[in-house]
Design a protein around this nucleic acid. Structure first.
Lengths: 209, 209
DNA sequence: TAGATTGTTAATCGATTAACAATC
DNA sequence: TAGATTGTTAATCGATTAACAATC
């Protein structure tokens, strides 16, 4: 009976993974929690606590094997498989995400895009088909989709979310400013860009700039 | 001598602001911390604690005036003025941010974009000029820029950041996966999209999907 | 073996929640 | 006035940090 992993720890895992990837590229064989803590600007204690939520990946007196720890993190984060995604809304953000090749490398594949306006087709590069949003339910009947990305306009967002949930989508990556209401068992990850930008303006005001 | 506002509180301000904006649009005059807590899924205690970091905006026995509280939050977040921004890197994300009109509405204006490849010009809509990145320093000499957005490729990111800092930029919105090293007095806000996506894959694995 | 570093328990710190007197 | 709800202090909870025995 393992205890629940806190949200704070989960949010840090990708960063550890990122750092370990860099270290491996640099050819490092081993790293101690202390050395990692200096590099990342966190405490060694926290790193050891975090990792030990999932198991003892290190060796006393030696530290952590970079390759092995990275591989373990990869598994923990769920990157040892592929994911199929669809993008709802082929506007600025939707197009940018579709054209970005970085997610492919980690196994996240954009299989299709949907929009109310299909005449945008010529902009969809990388052979990702763009369908009219009316075809969404039909598409989901015959295609397994792990993650749905919502990048429609704010006013359409809740409606699109409802349709996705009704069709059985369990994981949503939301780029609209809306606070979407969804059932408890659906996992949603919000990217509220304006919230992020506003923390910068807060700092400007704070510093009297 | 006011005590320091915690990071957690600051991160919640934009969300309060968003909610109050909705309430005002719905024509609400007043709201109690309890009603707001139900709507936002947080505790009334937390809302009152958070707001009271900045002042007593409510009235006992009555609650908060929606319009006044929203206006106060607007000021606190620093939205009662405008900001000039430049975007470094006219790739997918850079273009999407430049074309997105939502930030304008809150007073964040994209004044220029820079890239190593200027032949992308035809895609810059909304009359935002695209300059070669070699012209960055010259541009900054004669134009006041509040916030610089970094959306170049990962390998260029640190170099671009160094140049921005050298030219006096104090506020950076970073969209690259890099952990940029910058001086202490520079404020950086990171949007690590892959970290966000990875929390979804973590949940998939956790739930055995 | 001696030195280093983990895994883990205990101590500290900070953030959230509860409670309630003040007051509209 | 009575009821409602704030502002604020106190209590609780959880997360971070420190410490150290275990052990490579």
């Amino acid at each position: 009976m393992k205890k629940k992993i806190s949200e704070a720890v989960i949010k840090r895992l990708p960063r550890y993974y990122r750092c370990l990837t860099e270290l491996e590229q640099e050819g490092a064989d081993r790293i101690s929690s202390h050395a990692l803590s200096v590099r990342m600007g966190v405490t060694a204690s926290q790193i050891r606590q975090d990792l030990n939520c999932f198991g003892g990946f290190g060796q006393q007196g030696y530290g952590y094997k970079v390759h092995d720890l990275r591989a373990a993190l990869r598994g923990l984060i769920g990157l040892d498989r592929t994911y199929s995604m669809i993008i709802l809304g082929a506007g600025n953000i939707g197009q940018a995400l579709a054209n970005y090749s970085g997610f492919d490398k980690e196994g996240f594949y954009v299989k299709a895009m949907f929009d109310v306006n299909v005449s945008l087709t010529h902009r969809t590069s990388r052979n990702i088909p763009l369908y009219h949003i009316d075809l969404l339910e039909k598409y989901l009947e015959s295609n397994k989709v792990d993650i749905a990305v919502i990048s429609v306009t704010q006013s359409e967002a809740q409606n699109v979310a409802n349709r996705l949930v009704a069709s059985g989508i369990k994981y949503i990556w939301n780029f609209t400013p809306s606070e979407l209401s969804i059932p408890e068992d659906i996992i949603i990850e919000n990217v509220h860009l304006s919230d992020s930008l506003f923390t910068l303006s807060y700092r400007c005001r704070e510093n009297g700039v």
